[in-house]
Write a protein that binds this DNA or RNA. Structure first.
Lengths: 329, 329
DNA sequence: CCCAATAATGCTCAGAGGGAGTATAACGCG
DNA sequence: CGCGTTATACTCCCTCTGAGCATTATTGGG
């Protein structure tokens, strides 16, 4: 009711906004949060603070020219990492994010891609394997045993416990789609959907905060403060989707690299293995790389050619993906 | 400098946020903006206010459970439209959005899909063809003449006028990619990139506000207040991308429809024509629809079967798009 | 020096999917 | 009845893609 009443008066033409509330609503503040990703030695890593329990974040201020420039300035100054690629993820402002009921923070989250560097002295940041937080997402060495041993039984119990038959069916469907059961394929992009399903089922430690009643034992995976683990899941999901139609992987690679290194990087992000020969074919036929003439002896076998990213492709074409039968004539 | 200094202190672990600034920064407020889309009689329409110069928007309030629920409550109460599908678009907070330098509004924009209904009495909303605002985006009846007659000459002059050779090249590339010149295909998804290029080139009327110096004549297309036209472009871009891998078109369709109506709807959104037979094949082989047994006499020719959306597909599979050569074994 | 292990690299093949066109069916209207 | 109009059914061909086989180039150990 209160919501509805206030909504009526609040809903107005945007032109009125040109004189915004001089009386800003009390308790609303804006925050920037960064999911900063690197891939080192074939492992996906994310920059953390506070004993690996939080993502970098800072207040948005009037001095900042834009959200993105504020974030970029902060991160680069704090970490001395070149932020090649920055992309807005999502804006969160739910109640029950771990704050008190009277306080409200709007968090604008960003995904950033970089290359890992050793932290400077006195630096309280650290890089962490992101599967530390979401261990069920790594399918590179097969389906993690915890899925069959812990997650699915608990989720099925959660589905059974639904009050109505429709809800039971709905939950069962979500389990099947997100975790790829009943003959369905595993879809690595559904990171957020999986996290939210686990959260609803009470299997994520964050969901049990302030709810002291009995609930199923939480699934493994390190906890983060506030809803940062959810933001991390959002970032991983976005990145896993993005690498399929935009050459952003190269932001994570050194200047020169072998095709296997590139493949390992993609696999680290996607959390699953790719077919080696076809991967090479894809990369080469799209002309994403060019030879440097050098080769690497690092490997245990035949030396591999070193390649370099062809930055020109960013101009040559934009996106490829097409699903509509568009007429060319 | 000021930015950098304030950044250092502001950049902090998120855990500290659990006690957010009780002293919210002055002048920052949060706003919700909706790009509400319908397709009527084969034309794409967007809900506007203020003499068709603004999108619906309203302040985000503490009473709202989440950003999305706040938006949903407002729109449904204001317009009496069922908001089937709602999706967050982007959060804007740039300076120079048309506000004074001391005032800052964070705008969280949303895309909503609905079916058009007659506005109630006293309703100040109205539905407008979205190509009224972005006329260069409609390629259903061929390339709009204004592109060759007005846009490209002006853009080329803009590219020529760049201070450095690198920037000239960069601008030329952007023109070619976004407008599909030099043998490149037209990519209907680059709505935002095109708008921003035109904006930078001073061809959008909004870009000339408060800059009284001489600049090229603005391109046609109706103006909106603040940066609402940019938000509209963002919404169209998102929708054009989304219809290719997620069955959201059906949110815009009546309960039953012919395949041609569905096709016209897609074409309205994409701004280009699709191949009729292949479109049917796509829709049917993906099992997106089922027959109702009825047929429609409305058409000038043979009656068409009426179909209905199979909502089950939303559970059967999630996303299809795959570009990585993923091993199944 | 030969051999096994390890990678890199080259090539083939079959099936699916997508772009495009042809052919036929069912209506209204003059 | 013939014509225009739209619906619907097939066909063809080429590219893309998943998958596997074969060959080449190293290193390290007997």
């Amino acid at each position: 009711m209160t919501t509805a009443e206030s909504a009526t008066s609040a809903f107005r033409a945007a032109a009125d906004v040109s004189e915004p509330n001089a009386h800003a609503p009390p308790g609303i503040a804006a925050d920037l949060v960064a999911v900063l990703v690197a891939v080192t030695a074939g492992e996906p890593r994310v920059l953390t603070l506070q004993d690996a329990r939080a993502l970098p974040s800072g207040a948005f201020e009037l001095a900042h020219r834009s959200l993105q420039s504020g974030l970029r300035a902060w991160v680069e100054q704090q970490t001395h990492h070149p932020l090649g690629y920055v992309e807005q993820l999502y804006t969160f402002a739910d109640r029950d994010r771990g704050l008190g009921p009277e306080q409200r923070v709007i968090s604008i989250s960003y995904l950033g891609l970089t290359r890992e560097r050793a932290p400077g002295p006195g630096d309280r940041t650290s890089w962490q394997d992101w599967y530390l937080y979401l261990p069920w997402e790594d399918h590179r060495v097969g389906v993690p045993p915890m899925i069959d041993a812990i997650i699915l039984p608990n989720l099925r119990a959660f589905a059974e416990g639904a009050p109505t038959a429709a809800l039971r069916q709905d939950r069962s469907n979500r389990i099947a789609v997100t975790f790829g059961t009943d003959g369905r394929p595993w879809n690595e992009e559904l990171v957020l959907q999986r996290y939210e399903l686990l959260y609803e089922a009470g299997l994520i430690a964050e969901a049990r905060r302030g709810k002291p009643e009995a609930s199923p034992a939480p699934v493994q995976g390190r906890c983060m403060s506030l809803d940062h683990r959810r933001i991390l899941a959002t970032g991983i999901a976005r990145l896993r989707a993005k690498i399929k139609y935009h050459p952003v992987v190269f932001e994570l690679m050194p200047d020169t690299f072998t095709l296997l290194q590139l493949q390992r990087c993609v696999e680290a992000l996607a959390g699953r293995l790719v077919h080696k020969q076809n991967f090479r074919r894809l990369v080469e036929q799209q002309e994403l790389v060019e030879e440097t003439g050098l080769s690497s002896q690092e490997t245990g076998g035949r030396p591999a050619k070193l390649f370099r990213f062809r930055r020109e492709v960013l101009f040559e074409r934009a996106i490829v993906g097409t699903k509509l039968p568009i007429s060319r004539s």
